[in-house]
C-alpha cells in the first residue's frame, strides 16, 4: 500500500528526515516510536503533504502512485488520513459544517451526489457515538475549548467519518486519561480491517495494548534505526531508547 524509499526532507535549511525507508502493506499496523525531535511528526506531515517542508530526495509510493506532487486534499481523496498531534482549532466553524464540507468533497471526487442532510446527520450521530462524544459536539466550533482528550477523540471521529485507507496517527494517546485512552484505542482498533493500514506514532506501550502493531520502528535523528516486533515496545518502556541508539552508534 505504502512504500517510502530513501526519503529526505528539510524545513528551511534544516534537514529533518535523512533517508527513511518504510513499507506498509494492507492490513498491517506499524508503530513508530522515538525520542522527541526525532522527526516523527515531520514524517507524518510529509506523508500528508504539508507544504512548509521540502522533500529533497526519495519517493513516496501510495497504492502504486507517486504522491509527492499531490496536494494534501488530493492525498486525502486517495485515502490518506493524518490524526494530528496538535489538532487545530477553527473558531466559527462548526464540527458538523467542517465534516460536511470534507465528506461532500470526497463524494464529489468519487462522482457522487452530496449527502442528504438526513443521511449526514445520521452518520455524524453514529460516528460520534462510536467515540463516545456527546452529539452537542457537532454544533461546537472545531476543537475550540475542547480538552486534550476531546480533541484526540474528535480526530478519531473524523477518521471514522472519512474511512481512510491509510491512517497516520500522531501521538493520538498523548495527554489522555485512562477513559479517553480506552476510547481512542478501541476506536482505532475497531476501524482497522484487512483492506486498510495504520501508522501509529506513540511514546507508550499503553496505546499498543489496544492497537497491536505488526512492526515497531524506532526513529532517531531522521532515520529508522531499528525495526522489530511488538515486544520492542515493552523493552523501550523499561529501558528507554539509549541502548538502541548506542547499538546503532
Amino acid at each position: 500500500m505504502l512504500k517510502i524509499t530513501n526519503l529526505h526532507a528539510k524545513i528551511g535549511d534544516k534537514e529533518i528526515l535523512k533517508g527513511i525507508n518504510l513499507c506498509v502493506k494492507a492490513g498491517e499496523i506499524h508503530a513508530i516510536m522515538g525520542p522527541n525531535g526525532a522527526g516523527k511528526s515531520t514524517l507524518a506531515a510529509t506523508l500528508a503533504g504539508r507544504d512548509n517542508l521540502e522533500v529533497t530526495s526519495g519517493s513516496i509510493i501510495f497504492q502504486g502512485e507517486d504522491i509527492l506532487s499531490l496536494s494534501p486534499e488530493e492525498r486525502s481523496w486517495k485515502g490518506i488520513f493524518l490524526g494530528f498531534q496538535y489538532p487545530v482549532d477553527i473558531p466559527g466553524l462548526s464540527n458538523a459544517a467542517f465534516m460536511k464540507a470534507a465528506i461532500n468533497e470526497h463524494r464529489q471526487q468519487q462522482g457522487l451526489e452530496p449527502l442528504s442532510a438526513a443521511s449526514f446527520l445520521k452518520m455524524v450521530k453514529e460516528k460520534m457515538a462510536f467515540v463516545e462524544m456527546d452529539s452537542s459536539f457537532s454544533s461546537r466550533a472545531v476543537n475550540v475549548g475542547f480538552s486534550g482528550g476531546e480533541k484526540k477523540r474528535n480526530e478519531v471521529f473524523q477518521m471514522a467519518m472519512l474511512d481512510p485507507r491509510l491512517a497516520i496517527l500522531d501521538e493520538s494517546d498523548s495527554g489522555l486519561d485512562v477513559d479517553a485512552l480506552r476510547i481512542v484505542g478501541t476506536g482505532v482498533s475497531k476501524l482497522h480491517h484487512p483492506d486498510n493500514a495504520a501508522i501509529v506514532i506513540t511514546h507508550y506501550q499503553r496505546l499498543l495494548d489496544y492497537i497491536v502493531p505488526d512492526f515497531i520502528h524506532v526513529l532517531y535523528k531522521g532515520r529508522i534505526i531499528k525495526t522489530a516486533g511488538k515486544e520492542l515496545a515493552m523493552e523501550i518502556e523499561e529501558r528507554g531508547y539509549d541502548w538502541i541508539i548506542n547499538e546503532e552508534e
Partner: peptide
C-alpha cells in the same frame, strides 16, 4: 492544512 488534510480543497 488541517482542512485540506480532510479533503477540503
Amino acid at each position: 492544512f488541517y482542512m485540506r488534510s480532510r479533503g477540503i480543497s
